[in-house]
Amino acid sequence: MKNKYILLEMNQRNEIRADVNMTIKNMELTEIGSVNVKIDTGCPYTSIPILKFGISSTKAQQMKQRDCADDRIRKEISFGVNDAKEKRDADKEKFRAGKYMELKSITFQHGDFEIDFGGVCISKDHVKVSYDRTGNILIGMDVLSQMDIHIGKSKVLGKTVFLACPYVSMNQEYVEALNMHFDI
């Protein structure tokens, strides 16, 4: 049975996670099923470390090489909160020089991204993919901003929950869930 809205509980590590299905059609990868992702409202763009799918390091580097050589694929560099200024400056220099294969902070933009939270589907024209990172798959504000979202303590469950529904598929069940969990 498909869900009409998304309901996730915050875990003991203060994280909101979900097992989702996802596809990145123009990467010619098969659909990825039930992969764990983390909701990150502090992240402007959804980020997919391809190694998290279980693709081998060797294959990931081959894919990276292909993307580096393809001028049609948009490249960017992204930094984490712990990246020092020296690293950021060095990476910017390499990026400007086109030394993409040397950069672990580089992301590549791929198209036709779809994420499915148990039947609640969100699509995006593109998503950023990295071939070196091994961190979490982060669902950022580019996806989250497509939904009405409420985070708070559920009066039914007594726990902090994430309750959301895409604007394009608003439904009565979601409205009732808001009432049930938050008295909205």
Partner: peptide, 25 residues
Amino acid sequence: GFIGKETNEESDKLFMQGSVVCPVY
């Protein structure tokens, strides 16, 4: 479809078979 300490060419093949792949680690 695959069990191993590290992924490799054998596990990579699973992504090209048109099946849904669920990675567990």
